[in-house]
């Protein structure tokens, strides 16, 4: 049986205690909320923190508060998010992205904050210590080479969070709290395109909440690519939010790709193509092409990378057609294998 390495467990009741304890030794302390990301990694010895701070007992980290904007505690489970009528009615794309994460069991455990901080993934990295020894380890853990592209100076592990690209497209911000203070960071600024330093969150910071601005006038959607109807992390995704006028002309657009880089990847070019236009087939095709250009999938996930890159075009096209009002239910069902 795969077992956890030894660690000291601490369970604060307040955010204040959590960040205080975190500050004691931020580099060898890790936070655990649902445990669905960290614990497998610890069992495979990808991470071996001396101290684990459990966040489950911090009541202030959970809950969804809806006024004009939507404020979601980072410790809110993905199931709670999916069950929230406010989330579903105000930002359908976020609901769709959360509903497609992993499995029902893992959504019962995993949290929104955890999904945002999800470790980047790579088939050279998400392996046991024994397996990684057999390849001489990799840059992200205990080694020096990135085997995905041996000449690469940086780690090419893939951003595999479903919610981050969507929250980025929704213009969300997160609150990061440390013993030194509190700061608001746009989700767009939470990530680096680096498989190792993929978060701009400092090691002493706790992500406490996610704030989604008023979505009046906006519509959003999330399209995910994965092999099976369940379990699988995204290997490509399109998260799109549009604000349109009464005539259907796009006023504002956010197009963000998931799982094709070490961070959620916006396509400003696709956004620029959309703004000022109605969603004609030509406009959609041009935007999909622009999104295709920024996708840089590598050979470190399921499916072949060339095909995955091509699929970005399809995902963006499907998303935009759906936002236009096309009946995409059959296509959706074929790809997602669940009603969304």
């Amino acid at each position: 049986m795969m077992r956890l390495p030894a660690f000291t467990y601490r369970a604060p009741r307040t955010v204040g205690d959590a960040v205080l304890w975190l500050a004691e030794s931020p580099t060898d302390t890790m936070l655990v909320a649902g445990g669905t990301d960290l614990l497998p990694n610890m069992k495979r010895r990808q991470q071996t923190p001396k101290t684990v701070i459990g966040l489950k007992g911090i009541a202030e980290l959970t809950g969804i508060r809806a006024s004009g904007h939507l404020s979601i505690g980072a410790g809110t489970t993905l199931t709670a998010l999916v069950n929230s009528a406010d989330v579903r009615s105000r930002c359908l794309g976020l609901w769709q992205s959360a509903a497609q994460i992993a499995t029902p069991h893992l959504r019962n455990m995993g949290t929104l904050g955890g999904n945002l901080c999800l470790d980047t993934r790579c088939t050279y990295y998400d392996q046991t210590e024994e397996w990684r020894e057999a390849i001489g380890y990799c840059m992200k853990k205990d080694g020096t080479t990135c085997w995905v592209a041996t000449s690469s100076k940086r780690c090419l592990a893939v951003s595999s969070t479903d919610t981050a690209p969507m929250l980025l497209a929704l213009g969300a911000t997160v609150t990061l709290v440390s013993a030194k203070g509190t700061r608001e960071v746009a989700v767009a600024d939470l990530y680096n395109n680096d498989g190792m330093q993929y978060l701009t969150r400092r090691a002493d910071e706790l992500l406490t909440s996610i704030d989604i601005p008023d979505q009046t006038g906006w519509a959003s959607t999330y399209w995910k690519l994965r092999r099976r109807g369940s379990f699988d992390f995204p290997v490509g995704a399109a998260a799109i939010a549009l604000k349109r006028d009464a005539g259907g002309r796009v006023e504002l657009a956010r197009v963000v790709l998931g799982a094709v880089a070490s961070q959620p990847m916006p396509s400003p070019k696709a956004e620029a193509i959309l703004v000022g236009q109605v969603l004609s087939d030509d406009v959609i095709a041009a935007a999909a092409e622009a999104a295709y250009d920024v996708a840089k999938p590598m050979d470190n996930t399921d499916f072949e990378l060339v095909w995955r890159k091509k699929m970005v075009r399809t995902l963006v096209t499907n998303a935009l057609r759906e936002l236009r009002g096309d009946d995409m239910r059959a296509v959706r069902m074929s790809l997602a294998k669940q009603v969304l």
């Binding site: 088939t123 998400d126 392996q127 397996w131 109807g229 369940s230 379990f231 699988d232 294998k337 669940q338």
Partner: peptide, 18 residues
Amino acid sequence: ALVHKFPSILEYKSPTSL
């Protein structure tokens, strides 16, 4: 090195109920 690409039940894909 010559390794099994993904000796795991997540990456060795087995169909789900869906």
